[in-house]
Design a protein around this nucleic acid. Structure first.
Length: 271
DNA sequence: ACCCAGGAAATTC
DNA sequence: GAATTTCATGGG
C-alpha cells in the first residue's frame, strides 16, 4: 500500500546501517533488502543506485522515514571532517561510510540497550524478538510491535522468563516503571544538557554510562555521544593510543559507529 | 568444555 | 573509594 522513494541518498549502505549493532529489529532478505518493524509498522527497505525505497502494507509517513534514516544530514561532509582528525578514523570512515545513525524510538532503544549489556549481538536479537512476540501487539503473521512502557511495567520478573534475558529482567521492569510513571521523561533528554541527560537515565537500575550513551545516541539522536563498550575500548587503546573518545566533537557518535563497525570486521587487529 | 559478549550491581579489599 | 566478583544465558 505505502511506498516511498528517496533519491540521491549518499553515502548510504543498508546492511551497514541496519546490521551494525544499533538496531536489533531488521532482518536481511535473500535479495539484499531488509524487513523490519518501526513504530508498529512492518516495512521493507531497498537501496540501489542512490535510491532508498521503503515499502509497506501500511501507509507510510515520508517525514517519519526521512527522519528514521537521518536523510537530512550531510554525512559526506561529516565523513570528510572526521577523516581529517586521525588516519585510522579516515580508514574506518571509508570502510563503514555508508552507516547512518537511525532515529529509533527512545523507549525501544532504552530497553534493547539494557538487554545488550554483557551480551552478544546475535543473542540480543533473539531476546528482543521474544520480547516483542510475547508482549508486543501482533501486526501480521510474523511481526510484532515493540511493547510499550505501560505493558512492560505491568510484568513481573517471572513473566519475563520466556525471553531468557537472565539477570536483566528486573532492569527492564525498573526502566518501564520509571518511564510509565513519568518519573523519567525520555523526550526531555533530547535537549537537556548531555551530562544531566546521562544522569537522568542512570537513575534506572541496570543503566550505567555506556547504556545511557547508547540510548542518547540511538534513541534521542544525541550525535555527540560516544559509547565505550569492550570493542571501542580495545579500538582506542590499540588504534588511537592516548585518545579517550571525547575528542571527536559534535559528531563523535558517527565516528564511534565507524570505528565500531571497522573494528568488528577486522578482529585480527586485536590479536 | 571453554571463553566471552555493545556492563552494571554487589561485594570485598 | 578503588578493585574484584557476580549476575543468566547461549553463540561461536
Amino acid at each position: 500500500m505505502g511506498k516511498l522513494v528517496f533519491e540521491n541518498v549518499s553515502p548510504f549502505d543498508l546492511a551497514q546501517t541496519l546490521d551494525c549493532g544499533q538496531s536489533f529489529r531488521w532482518n536481511e532478505n535473500s535479495d539484499g533488502t531488509f524487513t523490519g518493524v518501526v513504530k508498529g509498522i512492518v516495512a521493507t527497505a531497498k537501496y540501489e543506485n542512490g535510491e532508498l525505497t521503503i515499502e509497506s502494507g501500511f501507509e507510510l509517513s515520508e517525514k517519519m522515514w526521512e527522519s528514521y534514516f537521518d536523510l537530512g544530514l550531510d554525512y559526506g561532509k561529516i565523513r570528510d571532517d572526521l577523516s581529517k582528525m586521525h588516519p585510522v578514523l579516515k580508514e574506518a570512515s571509508e570502510y563503514a561510510g555508508g552507516i547512518r545513525i537511525l532515529n529509533q524510538e527512545p523507549f525501544e532503544a532504552l530497553i534493547t540497550f539494557i538487554i545488550s549489556q554483557n551480551n552478544n549481538i546475535s543473542r540480543i536479537k533473539g531476546i528482543v524478538q521474544r520480547l516483542c512476540e510475547n508482549f508486543g501487539e501482533k501486526i501480521d503473521e510474523t511481526h510484532y510491535a515493540f511493547p510499550g512502557a505501560e505493558r512492560l511495567s505491568s510484568l513481573s520478573v517471572d513473566d519475563l522468563a520466556v525471553i531468557r534475558a537472565g539477570f536483566r529482567h528486573r532492569y527492564i521492569i525498573d526502566a518501564a516503571k520509571r518511564v510509565h510513571s513519568g518519573e523519567i521523561d525520555l523526550s526531555k533528554l533530547r535537549t537537556m544538557d548531555y551530562l544531566d541527560a546521562q544522569k537522568e537515565l542512570m537513575k534506572i537500575t541496570g543503566v550505567g554510562v555506556k547504556v545511557a550513551d547508547c540510548v542518547l545516541l540511538y534513541g534521542l539522536h544525541r550525535l555527540e555521544s560516544f559509547p565505550l563498550d569492550v570493542w571501542m575500548k580495545r579500538a582506542l587503546s590499540v588504534l588511537f593510543e592516548g585518545y579517550k573518545g571525547d575528542e571527536f566533537g559534535l559528531y563523535g557518535g558517527i565516528a564511534q559507529q565507524y570505528i565500531f563497525h571497522y573494528s568488528r570486521h577486522h578482529k585480527e587487529l586485536f590479536d
